[in-house]
Design a protein around this nucleic acid. Structure first.
Length: 833
DNA sequence: AGCACGCCGACT
DNA sequence: GTCGGCGTGCTC
């Protein structure tokens, strides 16, 4: 039977008085969903008063528009200013608990981001309602289109509108003719050729309503046809069922059902249902017996539960059974009537974790990630909000899950860069989890085999409590890692250059034993450095300062930064030669080479190119598990937390790629990546081994990865961080400046740098200092046609750093107000490319 | 964000 | 002289 939607009883819309003391607010404080700092006070008209509560969305007048806002609480008295009334309350019940408002405020403050935008970002998408201006052609306008009164430019606008009405935003959007401006449209409206009307748009996402049918008893069925009698028979046994289910049971038309309704035999009703994001059902499991180490870890953290705020760092080697620790703690938290939030870096791993949790905890689990469609996401949110689930598992955005009674926050693979949101609100969900735990006065648990430098430092300085799992479950040994010096095979040609004899031998042995091999190379495509053999010119991107990557499968050169591509058949851009040398290797080349070396083996590839299609990744993982694949070649995607029981050999093709990144975290990332991918070996019955090929066999990141010991790495890395005053000793805010005009962007970058230095001189006369570094050109000076500059603010006093950022955002409108140059702040940056 | 206000160059 | 370009400021 297909997965049917769960039925939810509809709530009684008349709320008992006194249920919530907020519901008598005369004025409310509202954060609007716009890039506006500060909040606003609105009056609540009498008829809306019983609906207005903290956490509800409202429609408010703002300037001459209507926008969505969020009620934060009761309003402040404004000094004699006009107070406008709210126009509508958009939610019957609050969309988030009042307790989360302090968390939203903290987030907005820390990341120097407008509060309303933070809340909008936190909520499931598709809820925002706002006015938009729509242009429609008038009769006069239609005539002007064929007449001579209108100029060419005016006719271009009118022609667009002759097809259909269009919003002003759509008309003035960049890809459409740049000469279309809002002002020009307004001028046409003054001529009477078009009219501009205001429409309320958005907010389409909401509960799903499904049609149900049920029989009415006591109506004579003597006259019914056989078909209709059969329908009634089904309803008699099934009771109230979804209409969809009825039409499956009895192939029938809606007209027949309608006729039966009119004759009074059945009634149709609507019910709110949840859209179900879960795949196949899972079989329940029972908790396994913990080993002594796991048991000790669980007990230590159990003692902290209920004792207020604390952060625990669970440093457990790969395969040490961290998930089981999370599940034991979750069980206890749930037993106490509290909720558990679990953050996982990637969707593929969420699915794995979600299945394990559903096997243990059944229906009490919700998921939140970008793989859900808008409706599913909304429903999962509502289930959490109503307290119908006790566990939510999700990606970084799930840090905003609307629990009012959190008892534990878990961040798995806490070192993972995926917790850092890039884009407009650049938050780090791992850091926010500690903040949220503090505000909820509860425990945050950060788990990793390769903890970040920041978390290690917090453990060393006793801000975090460290709990370790040093051994794998069932006494499985950690894989033995052999380091191979790639410099020795520099003279080799073709595949032998990157598959050394040692790796090849190990692969042969593994395949002979019927075991699986994982080959890791952190670069996709076939060749990463295509060069014309005739003129020596590299194949470059038109819009970025970077060489393109050759993709054999699609026979084209592609830019991994902006998506630009060139057909391989066209040859060299400069001299037209068709002879292009494919230097630099990616996973595609490794896959091809390995296929030739082991023609009898089944080789598959796992990278962004092969997993882009929905469901492709899950299929790949399934094939691997069922041993339909002998050798899997992949990028960092294979390094992350997966449990591959059949893999006994991991080959790291070239360990150095991430080491050469121009970033102070390059060493840390390299260590984490190598230790993690090594951890994929020997997770089943048979022990694993790793062949690690590198040009830098003596680099401490690589040596530490060989030991699979984050403490070794930490001890070596920390002096560098201290010497250069990098995190964890200092905090940083990264200012990114980008624009299409080279000179304008550079000039503006210098202006911002000068402004920062001036503010520092004015406000921070005494130490501790805030260093303003730059502006310098970004490591990739041009991406997608935009010139990029950056300024780094660095200081050990986080409060000062933030004051500077705030002064920039609030007190220096010229910095951010330039139309041609985009300026963004990145607090605690992860990647500084 | 989006809209109005206000200040400067190039046109009827 | 004005039209319309864009920097600046404001939205309860």
């Amino acid at each position: 039977m297909p997965n049917t939607n769960h039925h939810i009883p509809d709530r009684n819309s008349s709320r008992p008085d006194g249920e919530d003391n907020c519901r008598s607010l005369e004025t409310v404080e509202v954060a609007v969903a716009l890039p506006v700092f500060g909040t606003y006070t609105y009056r609540v008209p009498d008829p809306l008063r019983r609906f207005a509560a903290a956490g509800c969305r409202v429609l408010v007048p703002f300037g001459r528009r209507r926008v969505t806002g969020f009620i934060l609480g009761s309003g402040q008295t404004t000094d004699g200013r006009e107070i406008k009334p709210i126009l509508d309350v958009l939610d019957e019940l609050p969309l988030f608990p009042e307790s989360m408002i302090a968390f939203f405020r903290w987030t907005a403050d820390y990341y120097v981001h407008p509060l309303g935008e933070v809340i909008k970002c936190a909520l499931p998408g598709g809820l925002n309602r706002r006015d938009r201006t729509v242009a429609a052609l008038t009769e006069d306008g239609r005539r002007a289109l064929s007449g001579t009164a209108a100029t060419g430019r005016e006719k271009a606008i009118l022609r667009l509108l002759s097809e259909k009405d269009r919003s002003l935003r759509e008309l003035t959007a960049a890809p459409l003719k740049p000469e279309i401006t809002a002002a020009a449209c307004r001028a046409l409206a003054d001529c009477g050729w078009l009219i501009l009307k205001t429409e309320l748009s958005g907010g389409r996402i909401g509960p799903k309503r499904e049609r149900y049918v049920s029989a009415v008893s006591g109506v004579s069925r003597a006259e019914l046809t056989r078909q209709r009698a059969k329908i009634m028979g089904v309803l008699d046994t099934a009771g109230e069922i979804p209409l969809k289910q009825l039409t499956v049971a009895v192939p029938t038309t809606l007209a027949t059902v309608g006729a039966l309704e009119r004759s009074g035999h059945l009634v149709r009703t609507y019910k709110t249902v949840y859209r179900d994001p879960f795949g196949e059902a899972v079989t329940p499991d029972t908790a396994p017996i913990l080993n002594a180490e796991q048991d000790a870890a669980v007990n230590r953290i159990l003692q902290a539960l209920g004792g207020g705020f604390a952060t625990y760092l669970l440093a457990g080697v790969t395969g040490s059974g961290k998930t089981e620790v999370y599940m034991r703690l979750a069980a206890e938290v749930i037993r106490r009537g509290l909720a558990v939030l679990i953050l996982i870096p990637e969707i593929a791993l969420i699915t794995q974790m979600e299945r394990r949790f559903r096997a243990r905890f059944g229906e009490q689990v919700a998921v939140l990630h970008s793989g859900l469609n808008a409706g599913e996401r909304y429903d999962q949110w509502i289930r959490i909000l109503r307290g119908e689930v006790a566990i939510a598992i999700g990606a970084r955005s799930a840090i905003f899950a609307p629990f009012a009674n959190l008892g534990l926050l878990v961040v798995d693979e806490e070192h993972d860069a995926s917790y850092k949101q890039e884009g407009s609100l650049r938050y780090n969900a791992r850091d926010l989890s500690v903040v949220r735990a503090k505000l909820a006065n509860t425990v945050a648990l950060l788990g990793s085999a390769t903890p970040s430098m920041e978390s290690c430092h917090n453990a060393v300085t006793h801000k975090f409590q460290e709990v370790t799992l040093d051994r794998r479950v069932e006494r499985r040994p950690l894989p033995e890692i052999t380091v191979i010096d790639l410099r020795l095979s520099r003279d080799q040609r073709g595949v032998h250059r990157y598959i050394t004899p040692q790796l090849r031998e190990a692969m042969e042995m593994t395949l002979q034993h019927g075991e699986q091999v994982l080959l890791f190379l952190n670069r996709r495509g076939f060749a990463t450095f295509p060069v014309c053999a005739a003129c020596g010119e590299a194949v470059r991107c038109k819009h970025c300062d970077i060489t393109l990557t050759f993709h054999q499968q699609r026979n084209l050169y592609r830019c991994h930064y902006c998506g630009f591509s060139l057909a391989a058949a066209d040859g060299c851009d400069r001299c037209g030669s068709l002879k292009i040398k494919h230097l630099g290797m990616g996973t595609e080349k490794v896959e091809a080479g390995v296929g030739k070396l082991f023609p009898q083996a089944r080789v598959a590839r796992m990278d962004r190119d092969t997993t882009a299609r929905r469901g492709a990744l899950v299929q790949l993982l399934k094939d691997l598990r069922r041993h339909r694949i002998d050798i899997l070649v992949g990028t960092q995607m294979v390094a992350k937390g997966h449990d591959f029981p059949g893999i006994t050999l991991v080959g790291i093709i070239c360990a150095d790629l991430s080491l050469s990144f121009p970033d102070f975290r390059a060493g840390e990332r390299t260590f984490q990546l190598l230790a993690q991918v090594s951890g994929r070996a020997g997770r089943g019955e048979r022990p694993g081994r790793v062949i690690l090929q590198t040009y830098n066999p003596d680099h401490f990141s690589i040596l530490a990865a060989r030991e699979q010991d984050f403490r070794t790495f930490y001890a070596k890395e920390i002096p560098h961080r201290r010497a250069l005053n990098y995190p964890p000793f200092a905090r940083m805010i990264h200012i990114k400046i980008a624009g299409k005009d080279r000179d304008l962007t550079a000039t503006h970058a210098r202006f911002i740098g000068d402004t920062c230095r001036q503010l520092c001189r004015q406000h921070f006369r005494q130490p501790p200092a805030v260093d303003v570094m730059g502006p310098i050109e970004a490591a990739l000076p041009r991406v997608a046609g935009r010139y990029r500059w950056q300024i780094l603010l660095k200081g050990s006093d986080s409060a000062r750093l933030h004051r500077l950022a705030e002064m920039l955002v609030l007190g220096q409108p010229a910095v951010f107000g330039k139309r041609e140059v985009h300026v963004a702040l990145d607090v605690d940056p992860f990647s500084m490319l």
